[in-house]
């Protein structure tokens, strides 16, 4: 039995092929424009308002949205649903368990994964969005449930718009594969 267990760790198949240069360039341009737009809004509109637009999990979303365009994880349903649900879970978890940050963090991420699975909105950056709600510091904590809308909801939406605009320019790309 232990042998079978260890055998599973060997892996079973070969790693998939890499992408071509066009794909790499498209990914770079998409990632740059996506983060640039959210970052620009963050700098020009949020400065001094106590609001924030750019959070770490958007970097992860950019990988999927502009680098793995065809992945189900990168589709609009997953992007928007994953971020918004995870933000809700993250804020709630902090509200309930703020005395034990380690527990609040773990509960937020784990519950976010489960809820994303249940709702078919799995989006890995959602885990980061949930975690940031717990460990993001005073500025994030003070937002409470506004966090779900700004930065998370609006930021993800801006990234979606950029993905729709940019990913459909190259002949070799299309986005999305499905909406809901």
């Amino acid at each position: 039995m232990i042998r079978q267990y260890l055998k599973k760790m060997q892996g079973t198949t070969i790693s998939p092929p890499g992408v071509n240069r066009t794909e790499i360039l498209c990914s770079w341009i998409g990632g740059f424009l996506g983060i640039a737009t959210v970052g620009y809004i963050n700098e020009k509109l949020c400065n001094g308002t106590g609001m924030i637009m750019l959070i770490g999990s958007f970097g992860a979303s950019a990988v999927l949205l502009y680098g793995a365009v065809k992945s189900p994880l990168a589709q609009p349903r997953n992007l928007m649903g994953g971020h918004i649900l995870s933000a809700l879970i993250g804020v709630t978890s902090y509200q309930l368990f703020s005395s034990h940050i380690w527990f609040a963090a773990a509960a937020a991420v784990a519950t976010a994964i489960a809820l994303m699975h249940i709702t078919k909105t799995l989006h890995p950056p959602g885990g980061a969005t949930a975690l940031i709600a717990v460990i993001g510091g005073d500025q994030i904590h003070s937002l409470v449930y506004i966090y779900v809308l700004v930065p998370v909801g609006i930021g993800a939406f801006v990234m979606l718009i950029i993905a729709l605009l940019v990913n459909n320019i190259p002949r070799s790309r299309r986005y999305p594969e499905f909406w809901f």
Binding site: K70, S71, P72, L73, H117, L122, E177, F178
Partner: peptide, 9 residues
């Protein structure tokens, strides 16, 4: 388990 691929792909 989760499969990171669409039926179309």
């Amino acid at each position: 388990g989760y499969l990171d691929i669409t039926p179309g792909d």
